[in-house]
Every structure is written in structure tokens, then in C-alpha cells.
Design a protein around this nucleic acid. Structure first.
Lengths: 221, 221
DNA sequence: GGACATTATGTCAGTCACTGACATTCGGCA
DNA sequence: TGCCGAATGTCAGTGACTGACATAATGTCC
């Protein structure tokens, strides 16, 4: 209706080209995820993944920089969602309170939603477990996480109105939070039974509850 | 003099074979470190490193599982030293106090010692800086660090007499400590001038001082 | 000192991740 | 219809890494 006559509007629904690209990308992620879970990350070749989607190996590498990336792509959506949630937290909250609320809210909200698509919550949880027993994936994942932490530093600093180059507290908080979150992930994936998103939330809360007591206080009391 | 007549004593000085092996290993580490610093990690091939020490590529891979490992070997000695220092801390100290004293003591003691050999303090500091701007190395390093953290969990739990499977505090503390330590490393390597071991110690202390304030308290006070 | 087991090393061939160059095809648009 | 640019395929090449096998160096026992 109110569309510009001819000039390409900055916001327009994606054309056939873009949709096809997205479909290829999703198909690659989905095929990779399935193959990785079925036969293991190391025993799956890029050629196999490409063949499963009927594209050339070269095309695969135009979508993903390396084999790790297609595996971790499943988590990207979750991370974006977490950042979004964090940005929406009220300013009154303590930074740590905001971080906790954002991560818990993110898991819960995604857990409640429809569980389809290659980046669903269940896929993310399956991936987290896979990461822990795949050294090369773990390494790539940890690198991503530290990049996310750098982003966190900026958000926290802005929230609190401090200069992250001067005040080291945002960096320290982000690092500690990231570390504890990873401990919770590890604990979850060590568990035999799959407790789903709520199990993960419970573990995250339990770990965060222990952050302050672990630092100070007498452990033998 | 008091040597056993003939039976092979369980403790004996290494023979020619072992010494030669150690020399080859050190030479590989030293050559790799030099080449990496000179022309960058990615632009150095394993063949080059092997050629510099005059061994075959296959031999290189019998000493190190991959290219990352030879680079990070420089840090292995430092990590062992830290663990050693931690084990020597008195039991009265709070876990966090012990961790701090161990990491500071480790850097200081190594900084005071003779600075020769491929795993010297200066080499370690150079490496830390290199890691931060080499994605693949950073990933490998982070994975090693998490393994060390798992070791830390055991040591802390033993110190305090708790069961790490039941009590999550050791895991949380190790994760938080590791995260903060990494933030300090990052901060150090972002600094333009090389402040040496003492500069690193100062940064670690400043970061650890902020751990508790970053978690609680009002940032805008 | 010599025979023998053990271990370190070299050589070779092969797999696989990843990349640059170039040709081809396909979607969007006049 | 015809053109442009983006997406894809093909091909050749590099470099990390591995298994198999032969050879040489070392330690040991007599």
C-alpha cells in the first residue's frame, strides 16, 4: 500500500534469492547436526554434509568458515536471544541480577516456544552435551563465548554508566558470569538423564547462588 | 657410592636416550616459538619447524599432537608451577586467598629466576600476547585452561574436605577465578608497553580485588 | 664384545579441511 | 528479451595430520 513507487525500500520482504539462501543455510545446519549426532563430529566430513543438501563442498564453505561454525550455529540464536533479554532488563537491577534474569528468561521463553527448526531449544541442549565430549568443538565454543563476554562488558558498562577502559568491574563480572555459566553447562551435560530446559535453568540458578558464598565465608562452617 | 649393585633403581638419572629426547623437544619448542613470533602462527608451517630442528615432519607429530600444542607448551611449565604453589598454601587460608597467593607467587618466583630455556617467563608473556590475536591459538588455549580448572576443582575440594560432586562451590570458584584470570591476561596484552611479570601481577591483583565488588554492591554509589 | 628386544626416527601414501581462480548459471530488473 | 550481479560449481593446490612399514639408534643381558 504505502510502498515507495520504484526506489528499493530499505525494508522489504526478502525475494526468492534470499529465501533460497536461508533455506540452504538451514538445511546445512540441520543436516550437519543430524550427522554429527549420529556418527560423531570427527567422523563426519564436510563432503558428507554438502552431499546431504546436494551442494558442492565449496558452497558449504561460502556459508560457514569452517566445520566448527556449522555445528555452533545452533547456539547463535540462543545467544542473540540472551543479549536481547539482557538489554530489556530494568535499570534498577544489579548487573548480576540482570544477567541472571536474562539467562533464565531466555532459556525459559525459548523452552516454551514451538520447538521446530534447526535451532530449537532441544537442538541447543543436544549440542551443549556434544560440545563437552568433542575437544575441537569445545575449543571453538569457548572462543565464541569469550567474544560474547566482550560484548557483555560493553552492555554492562553502558547500563551502569561507567567507562569499561577505566573501570574493570564489567570485565570482571562478565568473566565470572561466563565461567559460572560454563560450570553449569558442564554439570548439566555430565548428568545422565536429559532434564530439558528447566533442568538447565535449575542448575544455572544453583550455580549462581553459590557464587558469593564460594568467594568469601568459611567453607568448613 | 651407595648405588644399588645392579638392579635398576626406580629413581635413576635419565639415560642418553631420554636426554636426547628432551633436547629435541626443547629445540622444537624454541624453534617454533621463534618462528611464530617472527612470521606469525598461521604463516609458519610444521615443515618449517621440523626443518629448523632437522627432524622429519612425522617426528614433530610424535612429540606434539598438533601445531597448537607446541606453541602452548611454553605455558605448561608455568601451569605446573602454579599448581605446585597452590598445593603448598597453608590450610588456614580461604580458598580464594590461596588461589591468589599461588598465582602471584608463581609469577613472582619465576620472574626472579634465571630467564633461560624455551619456557622462560618472558617467553610465556610473549606467548600470552600472541594468543590474544591468534583465534585458533586462543581456542586451543581456552580449552587447556578449562582442563586446568577441572584439576583446580579437585584440589580445592580436597583442601576444604568437601565432595565436589555434591558441593558445587569448588567448581564455581574455579570457574570464576579462571574467568577473572583471563580478563587480567587480556587486559595485560591489550597494554601497549611490556610491563613484565610485575605488571602482570599488579593487573591480576587489581582484577581479583574487584571480584566481590563487581558481584554485589551498588555500582553507582 | 655380540645378540636381542625396545624405541626413536624416516619415508611414503593417503585423507581431509580449507582456499583462490575461473567458468557457469540463476534471480532480479529494465 | 537482454543485461547485471549474486550464487554456485569445478578444479587445482596447500597444509595439517595419520597409519603402515622399514631402518637406525639405544639399552640389556650374556
Amino acid at each position: 500500500m504505502a510502498a515507495q513507487p520504484a526506489s528499493p525500500a530499505p525494508v522489504q520482504e526478502p525475494g526468492l534469492r534470499a529465501r533460497k539462501k536461508q533455506r540452504t543455510r538451514d538445511a546445512l545446519i540441520e543436516a550437519a547436526h543430524r550427522l554429527f549426532l549420529g556418527q560423531g563430529f570427527a567422523r563426519t566430513t564436510v563432503d558428507e554434509i554438502a552431499a546431504a543438501v546436494d551442494v558442492s563442498q565449496r558452497t558449504f564453505f561460502r556459508y560457514f568458515a569452517n566445520k566448527d561454525e556449522v555445528a555452533l550455529a545452533v547456539l547463535a540464536e540462543a545467544e542473540d536471544h540472551f543479549i536481547e533479554q539482557l538489554r530489556a532488563r530494568p535499570a534498577e537491577e544489579t548487573p548480576l541480577q540482570a544477567l541472571r534474569a536474562a539467562i533464565v528468561g531466555s532459556w525459559r521463553e525459548r523452552g516454551a516456544g514451538r520447538d521446530t527448526g534447526p535451532c530449537s531449544v532441544t537442538a541447543a541442549l543436544e549440542l551443549i552435551r556434544m560440545i563437552e565430549n568433542t575437544p575441537t568443538l569445545l575449543a571453538a565454543h569457548l572462543r565464541r563465548v569469550t567474544e560474547q563476554e566482550r560484548l557483555l562488558v560493553g552492555i554492562i558498562a553502558e547500563r551502569e554508566g561507567v567507562d569499561p577502559a577505566e573501570d574493570l568491574r564489567p570485565a570482571v563480572l562478565a568473566a565470572a558470569f561466563g565461567g559460572v555459566l560454563r560450570a553449569a553447562h558442564l554439570s548439566w551435560s555430565a548428568d545422565q538423564e536429559d532434564t530439558g530446559p528447566e533442568g538447565m535453568i535449575a542448575l544455572i540458578n544453583r550455580h549462581l547462588d553459590l557464587l558469593a558464598p564460594a568467594l568469601t565465608g568459611d567453607w568448613r562452617a
